[in-house]
């Protein structure tokens, strides 16, 4: 649940979501769930000329499985904490695996 836990802290931050069909959508992260489905508000498609059909869309719900990358706002990420969380996650997984 590390990713879920992590993305929850990014709520109300602006992120850029790159989809597997190459559309990049920048918007304010409103919600995320354990499948990493994402809800964005005030969205803006980075290459608007290429995707005119998106220009009228103001908010989107993205199914987690179609996300390729999420570009994070660096200043919203607590790196040492994330490192620790990763360690814990790894320890948890190792514990479960046994």
């Amino acid at each position: 649940m590390l990713f879920f836990s992590f993305f929850k802290t990014l709520i109300d931050h602006e992120v850029t979501v790159e989809l597997k069909n190459d559309i990049q959508i920048r918007g304010v992260l409103k919600s995320v769930d354990q499948y990493l489905n994402i809800k964005l508000d005030n969205i803006q498609v980075l290459e608007e000329i290429k995707y005119p059909h998106m220009s009228a869309v103001k908010n989107v719900f993205i199914r987690g499985s179609v996300v390729r990358y999420v570009h994070l706002p660096a200043n919203a990420v607590d790196v040492p904490l994330l490192e620790d969380a990763t360690r814990r996650e790894a320890a948890n997984q190792a514990g479960k695996g046994k």
Partner: peptide, 14 residues
């Protein structure tokens, strides 16, 4: 805390 460590601690910090 084990499941949701990052979020919980981050929220406490922030």
């Amino acid at each position: 805390l084990a499941e949701d460590f990052y979020y919980q601690v981050h929220s406490q910090i922030q």
